[in-house]
Design a protein around this nucleic acid. Structure first.
Lengths: 201, 201
DNA sequence: ATGAATAAATTTACAGCGTCAAGAATTATT
DNA sequence: AATAATTCTTGACGCTGTAAATTTATTCAT
């Protein structure tokens, strides 16, 4: 019956994605190879091609999931804050917390040569949803055109959070800010607090 | 005689590096392969191993050169500014100008899984020289310990410039800020101006 | 200057990769 | 049940990084 087939098919697809996630988190994106994914999923090295056009298509799916999860991180954080300044800070903290807790997928999401979102409309929609949330929460303007000067402070604040996340992730700030994840998150909060306080005028 | 040999050896090494730079700038880091580099340099596919331990060692050299050039970018920019606020802004602009004009090497310099600077002391020294310059110009403190609270504003400002460079480089800000390099640099300056003006209190 | 030691460069070889193509097995449709 | 469509496997090709062995070039001691 159709149900059995459908479930089975989804199972294979899921196990391929599960294996991909596991590999990515274990050994980084470099060790996510088509053949190793297939091995882990217990299928032939060619089976994944029935579900994904190529390696980049798998990465696009992972990146899309990442944007979904980043969105959830930020929405939850915003919900807990009361005033606008609090929401700004909470969102930035959530952004960085996501990056530090999901380093590999964060890299994937922001490296256009790994996944060109222009070729993956589904993932692009998820990414845009994130960026729109950032713009909505940070910005005064509703939607408006992106060339608007209103966007300048939005991008400035976003850049600070993104740059901080990136620099920490790549170890460019040394270990002075702690070795454990909690310590690093705490350090990031301090820097972000300083920055958002400036923005709050 | 010894002179001839020495020159010849350096020539091979240089031509390998030249080929590496060309490949990186033509087709991105993904198309910089050991074998293609050798082909371009007109040597056997194994010859590069007499000058570099492996692929990462070549990347480390390129990254090191990148840090040297970033340093020059920033020092020149700082020299043209008169007051402290001007130096801050000029340095940030130089940082972003470097990133936009040298996207591939900029990526290389800030991706630890591509080149782990811990394994390449020479390149690490050059990187640290850059970061020290940033800290010196942005910070009030001279050297001090990195855990000092004085570093908070330094890292905040650095994060803004780095995040902006990264987001622009990866096309996450859309094309709203211009398609030509000049337009994008101009847009970055506007955002950076807004940010540094906040920092200047 | 010539033979031995050293260094440099090439050739050969292997395992892994992404992915195309063809065939076998399974499932769906009529 | 027979046919059509889908799914999966096996095999192959050309690419990669790099280890090992071999050849060529250079240096040095005599």
């Amino acid at each position: 019956m159709a149900v059995t087939k459908s479930i089975s098919r989804d199972d294979v697809r899921s196990s391929i994605l599960d294996a991909s996630v596991a590999l990515m988190n274990e050994g980084g994106l470099g060790s996510l190879s088509m053949r190793e994914v297939a091995r882990r999923a217990g299928v032939s090295h060619q089976a994944p091609y029935h579900y994904f056009a190529d390696r980049e298509a798998i990465l696009a799916e992972l990146a899309g999931d990442g944007f979904d999860r980043l969105y959830d991180y930020m929405v939850s954080a915003i919900g807990l804050a009361r005033d606008k300044a609090g929401k700004n800070r909470a969102m930035g903290e959530a952004y960085i917390r996501f990056a530090l807790n999901n380093p590999e997928v964060f890299r994937l999401m922001f490296r256009c040569e790994m996944v060109d979102l222009a070729n993956y409309p589904e993932a692009k929609v998820k990414a845009d949803k994130c960026f729109q949330l950032v713009a909505d929460v940070l910005g005064a303007a509703t939607t408006a055109d992106k060339t608007s000067a209103d966007l300048v402070p939005v991008i400035a604040a976003w850049s600070t959070a993104h740059g901080l996340a990136t620099l920490m992730l790549e170890g460019k700030l040394g270990e002075a800010f702690g070795e454990t994840l909690d310590q690093r998150e705490e350090a990031a909060k301090r820097i972000l607090a300083f920055s958002t306080q400036l923005f709050a005028k």
